[in-house]
Design a protein around this nucleic acid. Structure first.
Lengths: 200, 200
DNA sequence: GTCTATACAAAGATAGAC
DNA sequence: GTCTATCTTTGTATAGAC
C-alpha cells in the first residue's frame, strides 16, 4: 500500500544507490563494479542483484534519483521571485561547489558524459536530458537577469547558458585532475563578473 | 642506428597508437580493450602486447604522443609575433573544432580526466601536466592580448585562462552528449565576444 | 613480429538454500 | 532479503611455436 507506480526503494536499496552514485562520480561507470558496492556495504554481489537486476538498471536508478533531486532544487530556486537573478545563479552553483569540496567527485552526469558511448542506451538518454534541462533552466535565469537589468551581456541567453554550463562542468573536471581547489571559484568569479558587464 | 633514447615506434605500433587514441577519446580508458584494437586492425591481442606490454604503457604512449604534438603546435602558434592574440586563440581552438566535427570524440585528456581515479598513476600525472601546460599557455596569450589592447577584460589572465580552458573541455563533453553540433561554436563565440569587451 | 594456446582474475549475472 | 555456489564472458597478460 505504500508503493507508487515506481515503488519505494528499501533502505538497503537507498544505500546501494548512494554508494553507486559516489563511485560513478569518482571512478566512472565502466570502472565501478557490483563488487565495489558490495565491499563498501559489507554485503554480497548477489544481494545487489536482488535490488537492481542489472548494472544498467542500477545506473538508471542512480541518474533518475539525482536528476529528480536537482530538478526539485531548480524549481524551488526559480519559484522565489524575490531573489535577484545573480542569487538564483549562486544557488544553482551550490552543488558544484559541494562536489569541488571533495577531492574526487564531479557532477554525476558530467562523469557519465565522459564515457557516453560506453553507456547503455537508456542511460545515455537520461544524461542527454539532464544536460538539456540544465541549459534550458540557465537560459531562463539569464534572460530574466537581462530583463531586470541585473545582467549585462550581448549574447543570446541560450548561448550564454551554454558557456556557463560547460564552464562549470569543465571546471570540475579540471579541478579534480589538477587538485587545485580554486579552479571552480576562479571560473565562477570570472563568469559572474562577465555577466555583470565587467569587461573593464 | 635510427632509434632515439625513446625508440622510434614501428608502423604497426603507430597504428595501434592511433586506434587506441581514437578509442579512448570516444569510449574512455576503462571501456577500451586490447581486443577492440586487435579487431579493428585485424591482428591478435598478443601482437599488441609485443609492442606495448601493458595497457598502462600503451595509455602512456598515447598521451605522450598527443601531448607532444599539441605542444609543438602551441609553440609554433606563439612563436609568430605577427599574429594578433585573437588569431592565436583561434589557432588554439582548432583541434577542439576538429574533435567537434566527429560525432564521438572529445579531447584525449578530457576523456581521461573523466575517470582520472581509475587510471594508472603515471597516466594521471600526464593528464594533470597537460591541463596545467594548456592553462599556462592560454594565460600567456591572454596577457599578451591585454598588453596589446586586443583583449578587454578585468580578470587576471590566469583566471580567465581557467574559464576558457574549462569552457572548451566542457563544451566538447556537452556537444558529444546532446549531439548538438553548435555547442562549441556558440561557446567560443560568446567567449571571444567577452574577451573583446563585448559586455554590450 | 605475429601467431596459437593458455593462465588468471574480475566482471555481470542466475539458481536455489536459508 | 541475503547468502553460497556457479556460470559465462571478457580482460590483461605470458609462453612458446613459427
Amino acid at each position: 500500500m505504500s508503493d507508487n507506480s515506481t515503488q519505494e526503494p528499501s533502505k538497503t536499496a537507498e544505500e546501494i544507490l548512494g554508494l553507486a552514485q559516489a563511485l560513478i562520480q569518482s571512478r566512472g561507470y565502466s570502472a565501478f563494479s557490483y563488487q565495489d558496492v558490495a565491499n563498501a556495504l559489507g554485503i554480497r554481489k548477489a544481494s545487489i542483484h536482488y535490488h537492481f537486476p542489472s548494472k544498467a538498471e542500477l545506473g538508471i536508478a542512480v541518474v533518475d534519483r539525482y536528476a529528480k533531486r536537482f530538478r526539485a532544487s531548480l524549481e524551488s530556486i526559480a519559484a522565489d521571485e524575490k531573489h535577484s537573478s545573480m542569487t538564483m545563479l549562486d544557488h544553482y552553483m551550490k552543488p558544484y561547489f559541494e562536489f569541488a569540496k571533495t577531492s574526487d567527485k564531479v557532477c554525476l552526469c558530467g562523469a557519465l558524459a565522459g564515457e557516453i558511448l560506453a553507456l547503455p542506451d537508456e542511460l545515455r538518454k537520461r544524461v542527454e536530458r539532464f544536460f538539456e534541462e540544465h541549459q534550458a533552466w540557465l537560459a531562463e535565469i539569464l534572460a530574466r537577469g537581462l530583463v531586470r537589468r541585473e545582467f549585462v551581456f550581448s549574447a543570446k541567453p541560450a548561448k550564454m547558458a551554454r558557456l556557463v554550463f560547460g564552464a562549470l562542468q569543465g571546471a570540475l573536471l579540471v579541478k579534480r585532475t589538477t587538485g587545485d581547489a580554486s579552479q571552480l571559484k576562479d571560473v565562477t568569479l570570472v563568469l559572474k563578473s562577465q555577466l555583470s558587464g565587467g569587461g573593464k
